[in-house]
């Protein structure tokens, strides 16, 4: 009985009032000999009044409960708001964790490469020398002013290909290129193959010039013999290709 809810109690009180009033009314219209004794009728009436009072008292309690319910509603709203905040914060924390995890992974990679570099240090002088060598000889791209016939080329040139591992694998004598064997021993800038090829150079006018020692450059008539000039170029590449085929 103590555990029934207020709404159930109110409904049961109304049921009781209905029953008692029905009883009283039936008693009122009953025949005289069937009527209840006066005391019983008084008891019934008292019971009805008591139930009515109880109903009103319970309604008062319900009023109080409605007030409490308002408070609970406010609390529920507040709890919901806090829930929302907590969810937001959790989401942000998760994002932060992800970002940090990525950063840590990258940092670890960096640390590993630092450790690797520390294990096998390369002197900065060597690096600069190598960089100079690459850039001074147009190793990565042709010079901006490059024109047809210009012997300056990006790496790897034929000579370097021969010097490389693949060239050495074939393990064949590199006879056809003079001065190739002692190329590595030469100081930078003194490249014999290039200097011989430099005999011919293209000028922006389109004329072919030949560098003759002691006489400077001599312009050659190429307008009528364009094919010849091209032959020269073709021949120069041909010679290297034929030599490479020779070496095989």
């Amino acid at each position: 009985m103590a555990n029934i809810s207020t709404v159930e109690k109110l409904i049961s009180l109304i049921d009781d009032i209905e029953l008692i009033s029905k009883e009283i009314l039936e008693n009122t219209i009953a025949m005289k000999h069937q009527k209840l004794a006066g005391s019983e009728q008084v008891q019934l009436t008292e019971l009805l009044v008591a139930k009515d009072n109880e109903l009103k008292a319970t309604l008062e309690r319900a009023r109080e409960q409605a007030r409490v319910e308002l408070k609970m509603d406010a609390l529920r709203g507040e709890v919901e708001r806090q829930d929302c905040h907590i969810r937001n914060l959790q989401r942000q924390l998760k994002e932060a964790e992800q970002i940090l995890a990525t950063a840590i992974y990258q940092a670890r990679q960096k640390l590993a490469s630092i450790a690797k570099a520390n294990k096998r240090p390369v002197p900065s002088e060597d690096l600069i020398k190598f960089a100079h060598r690459i850039s001074s000889s147009h190793a990565v791209c042709a010079p901006l002013t490059w024109q047809q016939g210009d012997p300056r080329r990006p790496y790897p040139t034929d000579i370097e290909m021969r010097q490389g591992l693949l060239g050495r694998l074939s393990n064949l004598p590199l006879v056809p290129q003079p001065g190739l064997a002692d190329l590595s021993g030469l100081p930078p800038g003194a490249e014999p193959a290039v200097s011989t090829q430099n005999q011919f150079s293209w000028h922006p006018s389109g004329d072919l010039h030949m560098n003759v020692p002691g006489q400077g450059s001599v312009a050659m008539e190429t307008r009528n013999h364009k094919t010849e000039a091209e032959d020269v170029e073709v021949m120069s590449t041909d010679s290297s290709s034929s030599s490479s085929s020779d070496s095989q």
């Binding site: 207020t6 109110l10 109304i14 319900a62 409960q65 308002l70 609970m72 609390l75 529920r76 709890v79």
Partner: peptide, 25 residues
Amino acid sequence: IRKLPGIEYNTEEQLKQLDVLRNQL
């Protein structure tokens, strides 16, 4: 009466619920 708010529980239970909510908050 069925439409009245906050009477699904009796007073004690309601107060208990209120306590639970406060604790939750």
